[in-house]
Computed example of a mutant assay.
Amino acid sequence: MKYTDPSYFFDYDHPAIQRITSAYQHLETEQEIIHNLYVEVRDGWRYSPFEIGLTKEHFKASTIAQKRQGHCIDKAILLVACLRAFDIPARLHLAKVSNHIATERLEKVIGTNELAPHGLVDVYHNGKWVKCSPAFNKELCAMYRVDVLDFDGTADSVMQEYNRDQEQFMSYLEDYGHFEDVPLDFIMETFKKNYPEFYEQFKDRDQISI
Rank of each mutant, 00 (worst) to 15 (best):
I64A: 03
V130Q: 01
A65S: 15
I73N: 03
E57H: 11
A135Q: 08
A76T: 13
V130N: 13
T21W: 04
Q25T: 13
L120P: 02
I17N: 01
F59Q: 05
A135F: 09
W129M: 04
D43N: 15
A65Q: 14
A16H: 05
L37H: 03
L79V: 06
L92H: 10
I110V: 13
E32I: 05
A135G: 01
I77M: 06
A85V: 01
T103K: 04
H100E: 15
L54A: 07
A142N: 15
L37A: 02
P134R: 05
C141K: 03
N36W: 09
V130T: 14
L37R: 04
C82D: 09
N99C: 13
A95T: 06
A81L: 08
A61T: 02
H118L: 07
A23G: 08
A65C: 05
K56W: 12
A90D: 12
V148E: 10
L37W: 09
K128N: 11
T103I: 12
K138Y: 07
V97D: 01
T21A: 01
V41H: 03
Q25H: 06
S48D: 15
L106D: 02
V41Y: 06
E28L: 13
K67P: 00
I101Q: 02
K128I: 11
H58T: 14
E40H: 10
Q69R: 11
L79M: 06
D43C: 11
A135T: 08
E104P: 10
I101F: 05
G44E: 01
E32C: 06
A135D: 04
R42Q: 02
K56F: 09
E51T: 13
A23M: 13
N137R: 07
A85T: 10
A16W: 02
G111C: 06
D43H: 06
E30I: 11
Q66C: 09
V109N: 06
S48K: 10
R105I: 11
Q18K: 15
